[in-house]
Design a protein around this nucleic acid. Sequence first.
DNA 1: CTGTTAGCGCCTTCAG
DNA 2: CTGAAGGCGCTAACAG
Lengths: 354, 354
Amino acid sequence: MGKESDTGPKTARRAMKLADVAEAAGVSLATASRALFPRARSAPEPVREHVQRVAVDLGYVPNVLASSLAAGATTTVGLLVHDLSDPYYAEVAAGAVSEADGANLVTLMITTQWEPARVFAALSSLRSQRVRALVLAGSGFADSDYRRALRREVRALRDAGIGVSSISDHGVPMDMVLPDNRGGAADLARMLVDLGHRRIAIVGGRRHVVTMDDRVTGFREALAEAGIELNDDDVVHTDSTRECAYEATADLANRKNRPTAIFAVTDMLAVSVLGALYDLGVRVPDEISVAGFTDVAPLHEVRPALTTVRLPLQEMGRAAVELAISGKAKRQRKLTVPAEVVQRATTRRLPRAR
Amino acid sequence: MGKESDTGPKTARRAMKLADVAEAAGVSLATASRALFPRARSAPEPVREHVQRVAVDLGYVPNVLASSLAAGATTTVGLLVHDLSDPYYAEVAAGAVSEADGANLVTLMITTQWEPARVFAALSSLRSQRVRALVLAGSGFADSDYRRALRREVRALRDAGIGVSSISDHGVPMDMVLPDNRGGAADLARMLVDLGHRRIAIVGGRRHVVTMDDRVTGFREALAEAGIELNDDDVVHTDSTRECAYEATADLANRKNRPTAIFAVTDMLAVSVLGALYDLGVRVPDEISVAGFTDVAPLHEVRPALTTVRLPLQEMGRAAVELAISGKAKRQRKLTVPAEVVQRATTRRLPRAR
DNA sequence: CTGTTAGCGCCTTCAG
DNA sequence: CTGAAGGCGCTAACAG
């Protein structure tokens, strides 16, 4: 039916629909549907085969929008990260996307640039997309307004039947993957102390970001247990990552009481610290030891090899997706991920360690 | 695992729909629609305001599936990359996602793991999602079967009114962003020659990947013009990136006629080469010069700073999305992106340059 | 087993 | 300017 279709294939012609296939195959809509997508009821083998070949001959591609609308369930999962160009999130996302793919789900990715407002915008956008599940992969903020608002939003999501999970604790009840930032940082601190370090500085990341805060806290507490108190100016906070860390390092290196070790809460910060020290002619680890956190992949081959605390980023992404899509559980689930110190070449034992 | 009946408002209740808002506001469905989403016709200010407040009071969130289905246009763009954990793609994706976001579009991300079959699966999946536009960010393959099949698929996409663009040439007519891999590599080769290098080796990446191939070709041609012919064993190909590059480097460094410079077609490969040389005790750039390609962000602070060829990854991602969503043009558009040599610390002038 | 028929939630001519 | 009504493409009860 219809007039001669224009042979010029350039014209955006209407896509084939199931009804077209059904008609061409001489069966009803319902039968075609059952033949192509066997769920509750299937269709007998001969019919199925026939309809399927007709479908491919016609170049039929199902309209997911329509089927999702009718079936009341989509095939998408939402993924929120702060910044894809950060290796941390890139790896987490790689794992998450791969896991979703394995579940035949496609990933709606949104980047929030460390801005709470964008997180909420993204959440609302994804809700409106009716994602089947959603993962808050970005670290949460230590801010009670944020948490209150998030709590409301998450409740709405769950009420709508959307499974939600997060990586790191956002201060809101939901399933979560909890990398042991505190424990890992504490282990690292103890290791440094064992190596004889006493004057240690921290190059912290953004303020009020729980992931970063936890690392600082864990590190600090472990030092305190060893009888080492950190002054406020032993903890430098950096915002714009790059230059900040660089300057902070220069400052630390020039102090009269120069630290013997620097803990950067992020591998990316650590590499900036290393770069600054290199440029200043301060030898690592001979003069100063440096450690990072996360063991991010792009830096694996860098020399001297960075001492850091390993986190299985991709697996964390996978696990978060897994939690979210299986999120029917009544009880909140928390999956703790161990963080393991990896001692490499940027740290050394102090010669006259007591 | 008791039979704890979920109490409270946790039960997945039906989400608010436009009809609910309309009813609560005492207007018709059509009016509510026009009040909330003013497009062709809007609604008078007073009505609009009223309906809007009713909507928020009810916690109404529009169902994008339904509206897309009815309006015949979605708000999603598809993005295909090979591997998100590769800094190259992570940055490209960051740019692309951001650009899409700026156009109020949300990104459907799919990773294809360098497998052609997955590319096609992704394409079909995205078509079925009725994306508004789609970007093939992953490098194409130098394989005629692949290209033939892709050509068909792209035509189908365009026929369906979906704008398509790619980064790098996939050998198929469509809008594309073309980083000047050949030119950049050629410039790099000339620079090395100018520095006095004559024995140069290439650590290539995957075979039959146009992006990598182009770099090798451009480099090789420029050397040839300078009268330097590369033997086959001067070009090593690596698949699994990591170990391969490492071993290849060891091999190169141990040759009787050790090269004075190594060009790695990728920064990530270059850093592996550097790592291997470091472990072997070969000094860079004193004994061997090393150069990479792309100037990937996570490596910016690494020392000695890597000589490389800069490509504006994020902008490439943005541009590709821009092309795809504006893809109504009849004429094919090609956007060439210049690649600029950045000479840093891993290359040096040979002392007795002839 | 197959076909008919309501919707899914929204948009958009078309009357009023 | 507003409302009623017919789709958008598909699914899932229902009959037959």
